[in-house]
Nucleic acid binder design. Structure first.
Lengths: 149, 149
DNA sequence: CTCGATGCAAACAGTTTGCACGATT
DNA sequence: AATCGTGCAAACTGTTTGCATCGAG
C-alpha cells in the first residue's frame, strides 16, 4: 500500500466513506496520468485497462480526491475543468500554447511574493491562485513563421 | 452614435456583417452592466427593458464583441464564462472572495513585468494572461472570526 | 439490517445548430 | 435573387441525480 492509498483511505475513513475497488482504480488511473487530465481521460484510461467504471462514479469520486489534497483543479484553458496530481510541488503556473495546446509549467517565487504583497494591501487572505499565460510557444512560432515565408 | 457603436459597426463592416437593432441592443445592455456578466445576465437585462432577444442571438453576438475588442472573457471563477467591458483599462487581475463572491480588481506592473520575463525565458509569445487569487476578503474574515467567538 | 457505493438511465444546464422566415441590398 | 440575421426548437455536451441493486459490516 503506497502513500497515496494511505492518504486517500485515511481521508475516506475520516468521513465515514469507503475505500472501494472502484475508488482504488480511479486513484491509480489518476496517478498514472502525466500532466493535466479531465474526467474523460480518466474514463478512457480505465477502459483501456478493461476496468470500465461509470462516469458517474468518477464524477462522484473526484471531489473526494480534491478534498483529500491528492489532486487539484487547475487553470481552465479549455471548455472543461482540468485536474492534476498534487505531487509535493507546492504550486506552479502555466504557459498554454494556443496553437499546439501544450502546457509549460513554471514557478516564480518573485511572482508569488508580489501576490502576497497585493493580498496584504487588500487585507485579503489567499487560499489559492491560478495564473495562466496564453500565447505561442517557441516551436509553434517557428512553424508559423516558416509557413508564412 | 457613441464610440462603442462606431467601433462595433466598423468591426462588423470589416467582416461583411451587419449592425442590426438586436446587436445594438446587446451592445447597450453589455455596456450598461457594471462589473462582470454572463450570457444570462445580458438576457435578463434586455428582458427587463422589454427588448427580449433570443439567447441564441446573444451567444452568436458575443464572439463578435470579443473579437472587436469591446469586451473580453475574464477569469472563470464560477461555472460559466464571465465577460467584462474593455474600458480602456489595459489589463487587471482579480481577487475573488470564496465567501461573499465579491471580486476585487487590481493591477500590478511588477507582476506584469515578471510574467514577461518568464515568457522570454521560455521563448514564449504571450497573448493574454489571467491571474485570479481566491481567498477571503477583509469583511468576510471579520464576520467569520466574530461568529466563531 | 443498515449504509454507503455503484451503474444505468433520465434529468439537467449551458451552449450550439438546423431550419424557415424576414430584412436589406 | 442573394446574403445575412433572427427566433424557435431540437440537438448536443458535460455533469448531476433518482433509483434499484449490490456488498461489507
Amino acid at each position: 500500500m503506497q502513500n497515496k492509498e494511505i492518504v486517500f483511505k485515511n481521508y475516506l475513513d475520516s468521513k465515514g466513506l469507503k475505500f472501494t475497488p472502484e475508488r482504488s482504480l480511479i486513484l491509480d488511473a489518476v496517478f498514472s496520468m502525466n500532466g493535466h487530465f479531465d474526467v474523460e481521460k480518466v474514463h478512457d484510461k480505465l477502459r483501456k485497462k478493461n476496468k470500465t467504471i461509470s462516469a458517474a462514479t468518477i464524477y462522484r469520486s473526484l471531489p473526494y480526491l480534491i478534498d483529500s489534497g491528492l489532486i487539484r483543479e487547475v487553470l481552465r484553458c479549455e471548455n472543461r475543468p482540468q485536474y492534476e496530481v498534487n505531487m509535493g510541488k507546492p504550486h506552479h503556473d502555466h504557459l498554454v500554447c494556443l496553437n499546439c495546446g501544450r502546457v509549460f509549467e513554471f514557478r516564480d517565487d518573485d511572482i508569488e511574493k508580489l501576490q502576497n504583497k497585493i493580498c496584504e494591501k487588500f487585507h485579503f487572505k489567499p487560499v489559492e491562485h491560478r495564473l495562466g499565460i496564453r500565447g505561442y510557444c517557441m516551436d509553434c512560432l517557428k512553424k508559423l513563421k516558416d509557413s508564412n515565408s
